[in-house]
Amino acid sequence: MAVITQYVVQHKGVDKLVTTNKKEADQYDKMLEVADNISLYLQAKGVDLDESVSEELSILMAKNKDSLGKILRGTSVDKLLEQESADVVEMKKA
């Protein structure tokens, strides 16, 4: 019989990630914390979004914080997407 250690990352009572890699779990947990802070910041600045849209947007921003930093420093979106060969994300209207 094998013993397997699993790390479970929960967010608002929901299992978001189950992994055997502690570093991966810690990174994902940190990303969720950043996303929560982004969501709170947007709310504090008067941005009124549906909760699910706010969560989705905040997680997207947290996952792509390095790219957003480049955009804030003046890199064009076209150049950035070309460099990343990124998928274009379409936001749903609430």
Rank of each mutant, 00 (worst) to 15 (best):
K22Y: 10
T5F: 11
L60Q: 12
V9S: 13
K65V: 02
G13H: 01
V9G: 12
T20M: 13
A25W: 00
K30P: 01
I59E: 08
I38Q: 01
T19P: 00
G74T: 06
S58H: 02
L17A: 09
D50Y: 00
L72V: 01
K30A: 09
E24W: 04
S54G: 03
L60W: 08
E82T: 11
T75S: 14
V89D: 07
V77I: 13
D66V: 13
D15A: 15
D66Y: 05
I4K: 09
K79E: 15
E33C: 07
L17S: 05
A2R: 15
D26V: 07
E56Y: 08
Y28Q: 11
K93Q: 14
K93I: 13
D29A: 15
L49K: 03
N21A: 09
V53L: 15
V89I: 14
V3C: 10
K93V: 14
K70P: 02
M31R: 14
T75W: 12
A35E: 00
S39Q: 10
I71Q: 10
K65S: 08
L68G: 07
S85A: 09
S52C: 04
L57R: 03
A94T: 09
T5H: 05
A2F: 09
S67L: 08
D48A: 13
E33M: 06
A44I: 03
Y41C: 04
L81H: 07
V77F: 11
A62V: 11
T19I: 04
G69L: 06
K93A: 13
L57V: 07
S58M: 01
L57I: 03
K65M: 02
E56G: 07
L40C: 05
E24M: 12
H11W: 13
D48W: 04
E56H: 08
I38D: 01
E51R: 09
V14N: 02
K65C: 03
N37R: 15
R73Y: 06
L57A: 04
V53I: 15
K79I: 02
L72P: 00
S52K: 09
S52F: 06
Y7T: 12
D48R: 09
A94H: 10
V34M: 13
L68P: 10
G46L: 10
V47W: 05
L60A: 07
K12L: 14
A86Y: 07
A25D: 09
M91C: 13
E24T: 10
R73K: 14
K92N: 11
V18M: 06
N21T: 10
E56P: 00
A25F: 02
D48M: 11
A86E: 07
E24N: 11
A44N: 07
S52D: 12
D87Y: 14
E55M: 06
T19N: 01
L80D: 06
E82H: 13
N64R: 11
L49R: 00
K65G: 00
N21K: 05
G46F: 08
K23M: 07
K16R: 12
S76N: 09
T5A: 10
A94V: 11
T20Q: 15
I71P: 05
N21E: 06
I59N: 03
K45E: 10
